[in-house]
Amino acid sequence: MNLWVYLATTPLFWLTATILAFLIAGWVHEKAGRPPWANPVALSILLLMGVLFATNTPYPIYFAGAQFVHFMLGPATVCLAVPFWTHRHDVRAMALPLLAAILSGVVTAISSAVGLAWWLGADRLTVASIVPKSVTAPVAMGIAEQIGGLPSLTAALVLGTGILGAMIGPGVLRLAGLRDPRAMGTAMGCAAHGIATAAAFQIDPKAGTYGGIAMALSGLLTAVLVSLAVLVMG
């Protein structure tokens, strides 16, 4: 029992648990034949939430260990410069479609999320937290803070959007006849940031690259548009 008391509070335990849960989720995903509903991110989160419930562990204790994985989100975002450079000729040739698509995507993402949540009677705090839901987590949390949302709720909504985009993105786009890997990647990166970008990389490396570009540009554009809106509306 003493050993468990020690283990349950050490960061090493929860860091190990996070990576093990992800490996198990990946294994299940693989064994089940890679169905979109068994998204490894969603599975590992459910698994870890179950462990936290069962062991009565508060989230901050868990995060003390898991933060080392979480921290790598920043460097990973910086590293997007590398595939961006590798595909720079594509990016330059497709600059116009990319910018047009991402600008309209960002406006659609914000207005439809806010409109639907408001219409269905969501609380002010929830509506403010849902504004940056399509943008990568570190950017979205900063935006939520600026407009008076709850950054940790935003993190959860961002994640929900990401998993949703990864799960339904390829199907929705194919149903609509949008099969060009560049269009698919751009749509998935813009609508559902890094998680859908990771899924786009599995469709095609080019789709993943466009996903990364779309994710970086839409993060930048959402931050700029929201702060301009705040300046204008006071």
Partner: peptide
């Protein structure tokens, strides 16, 4: 308490954003 509003907003907005972004990209390309 708010699962319906949040759920519909996430699903609806994600589908719309996917279609608008992918559609505009394809048209302009």
């Amino acid at each position: 308490a708010e699962w319906l509003a949040v759920g519909v907003a996430l699903v609806g907005s994600t589908i719309l954003t996917l279609l608008v972004t992918g559609g505009v990209f394809t048209l302009v390309a």
